[in-house]
Computed example of a mutant assay.
Amino acid sequence: MTDNDPKSETKPAARPDERAARAARLAAQLKANLKRRKAQARGRADADKSDTET
């Protein structure tokens, strides 16, 4: 019986330094995304205020 099942193939475990680098990249992207979303929300809030004041 041959073992050609793709589920049985596993990826080699990432080295700890690769995991740390990936975690740092993801954290930076998350922080940038949050900053961008907050800026968009502030922009919408400012636009809503200016619409209601006129």
Rank of each mutant, 00 (worst) to 15 (best):
A41V: 02
K11V: 04
L26C: 00
R25G: 02
D48R: 14
K38I: 04
A24H: 03
A23E: 11
L26D: 11
R44E: 14
P12W: 07
N33K: 15
A27N: 09
D48A: 14
R37T: 03
A28E: 12
D48N: 13
E9I: 15
A23V: 00
A39F: 00
K49S: 10
A28L: 05
P16W: 03
P16C: 01
K35M: 12
M1C: 13
Q29S: 06
A20N: 02
E9S: 10
A39D: 09
P16H: 02
D5F: 08
D51F: 03
D5I: 07
T2V: 10
E53Y: 06
Q29N: 10
A47Q: 09
A24K: 10
Q40S: 05
S50K: 12
D46M: 05
D3S: 11
A32Q: 14
E9K: 14
T2Y: 10
D46E: 11
A13R: 15
K31M: 05
A27E: 13
R22E: 10
R19C: 09
D51E: 11
Q29R: 11
N4S: 12
R37W: 07
A23D: 08
R36W: 11
R25D: 04
D17Q: 06
T52W: 09
T54A: 08
R42A: 12
R15I: 01
K7D: 07
R36Y: 09
R36I: 05
T54F: 07
R44G: 06
K11D: 09
T10Q: 14
K31D: 12
D46P: 00
T10P: 01
R44P: 00
A45N: 05
E53V: 06
A45C: 01
K31W: 04
A41H: 08
N4E: 13
P16T: 02
E9G: 00
M1R: 15
N4P: 06
R37I: 05
T54V: 08
R37Y: 03
R25S: 05
A13L: 13
A47C: 01
A32K: 15
A24L: 06
Q40E: 13
A20L: 07
K11T: 04
A21S: 04
A24C: 00
A20Y: 02
R37V: 08
D5Q: 10
R44T: 07
R19L: 15
E9N: 09
A32G: 08
T2P: 15
A20K: 07
A45R: 14
A24T: 06
Q29V: 02
K31Y: 05
Q29D: 13
A32W: 04
L34H: 12
P6Y: 04
A45Q: 14
T54R: 10
A41R: 10
K7E: 09
R42C: 02
D17E: 13
D46G: 00
M1A: 15
A23M: 02
K31R: 14
A28D: 09
L30M: 04
A47W: 02
D48S: 09
L30D: 12
A13Y: 08
T52M: 13
L26G: 01
D17G: 01
M1N: 14
A14H: 04
E18Q: 15
D46T: 04
T54K: 08
D5W: 06
E18C: 02
A20P: 01
A41Q: 13
A20T: 04
A24Y: 02
N4V: 10
A23S: 08
T2Q: 13
T2F: 13
R36T: 11
